[in-house]
Design a protein around this nucleic acid. Structure first.
Lengths: 241, 241
DNA sequence: CTTCACTGCGTACGGCGTTCGCATTCAGCG
DNA sequence: CGCTGAATGCGAACGCCGTACGCAGTGAAG
């Protein structure tokens, strides 16, 4: 690689034992893959481009990773480490709210996560994902739920559903190049025309047109916490019963 | 095409004006795409294979569909027609339960739907999706929710999250070639080893190992309706308040 | 000094989505 | 009936993609 970089085929021009890069390693590959995924989305990640980013040939990656799917699995587990769950002991409801918010924040920070979840689900067995599940289980068991895993699945389903929808929306917005408010404004005519024959939708869109262009982020936050409160209310009923 | 099928390049061997197929049309393309998606999953659909299924060249499809993404959008709207929502008037809770079950059934009948939702969300404006939203809005508005769209978003998030997770799981199972119970049994050792250092997970898996291999379908059904009841309880509080 | 496991990489294969220009068909019109 | 112009199908080609394979260099072990 050093010799090839230099066009003069002379021994004397050869560079000296250059361990310039920290070498190729599974950890480095996964880390850079996450960076690329965050920056340009899931369809912009190819083994060739990833190799190039690491000053390596595309096929060199296969010494450390069996397949691209496996790489994605590793990337998911990598970002799963970012999701926090409060330790048991404090007030349950606040802890659950915090855990849900952390999941959502992570999903929005790495929008490609939603795409992968849709294809592979949460069946991965990576260490970070396992640790996350364990902390969730510990929290819910300590709270005294009769069926902790049922409660967890319910909460997670809501959080996943909302976060996935939101992440997909933000991806669409980002691809448009506009700000979120501008994108909404640009989309409204088409949406209102499509809803023309539907009374309830039309009025809902009319409302949205006014408010959503002002502060879309606040609206999304409020929507998330409304639904979260709904779910937590329902869960609480089963707790105190 | 007729001439090419015959190896003898003679005028006399030419077939007679064969309009054998009902011709290529957008509707036929979308219909066949859904069939292929259902049969072999999202990654098995390529424009070439789809063209071949329709006795057409791959590129002929582009006369009727701008791009593969657009085709997927059309396919989503096609299956969206299958989701039913009861008309307003009856008891609200049963109607919502029915609507949720219909969404889930559709998502499980077309597991590729979840993959697409993860990438594109529900921002599509297809007529069937719009009609679906309208019926939901009508139901919730008639019920008297103070903020119908909030309630809808909450319910939908739960349903989407649970269905997506379930569809992804079933896809993984299907790819393995095993039955669901057999797949679980085969997976358990690895799962239990991965959970070895996690107390709560280990015991949860131990429970699952016993019950899940018996009737996985019933367990998934129960899980879904448990969470659905949680959400509906939470919504009902806001209704009667 | 030899050996050997390990790592990187160039090449190549088959498949993909999509573009482009040509061939064919056919409805509508003179 | 003959002509024309639009609509439709298609083959070839472009630039990507994931990945199998076998060779080349390297550094530690013997």
């Amino acid at each position: 690689m050093a010799a090839k970089a230099n066009p003069v085929p002379s021994v004397w021009a050869r560079e000296q034992s250059t361990p310039d890069q920290p070498a190729l390693s599974r950890a480095a590959i996964v880390r850079e893959a996450v960076v690329m995924l965050d920056a340009d989305g899931i369809e912009a990640l190819s083994m060739r481009k990833l190799g190039a980013r690491l000053n390596a040939g595309a096929t060199s990656l296969y010494r450390h990773v069996a397949t691209k799917d496996e790489l994605m699995e590793l990337a998911v587990d990598e970002v799963a480490a970012e999701i926090t769950v409060p330790a048991p002991g404090g007030p349950w409801r606040e802890a659950a709210t915090e855990a849900a918010a952390s999941f959502r924040a992570t999903a929005l920070r790495h929008p490609w996560l939603s795409s992968v979840l849709g294809q592979a689900g949460l069946a991965y067995l990576g260490p970070n994902l396992m640790a996350y599940s364990e902390r969730l289980a510990a929290l819910f068991a300590a709270t005294g739920f009769p069926e902790p895993s049922r409660a967890i699945d319910t909460l997670l389903s809501y959080v996943i559903g909302m976060s996935t929808t939101e992440a997909a929306w933000l991806t669409t917005v980002a691809r448009s190049g506009d700000t979120e408010a501008a994108f909404i404004a640009r989309l409204m005519p088409a949406a209102q025309q499509a809803a023309a024959d539907h009374d309830h939708l039309a009025s809902a869109y009319a409302d949205a047109a006014v408010t959503a262009t002002v502060d879309p982020v606040a609206i999304r936050d409020a929507k998330f916490s409304y639904g979260l409160d709904v779910v937590l209310d329902g869960l609480e009923m089963r707790l105190t019963r």
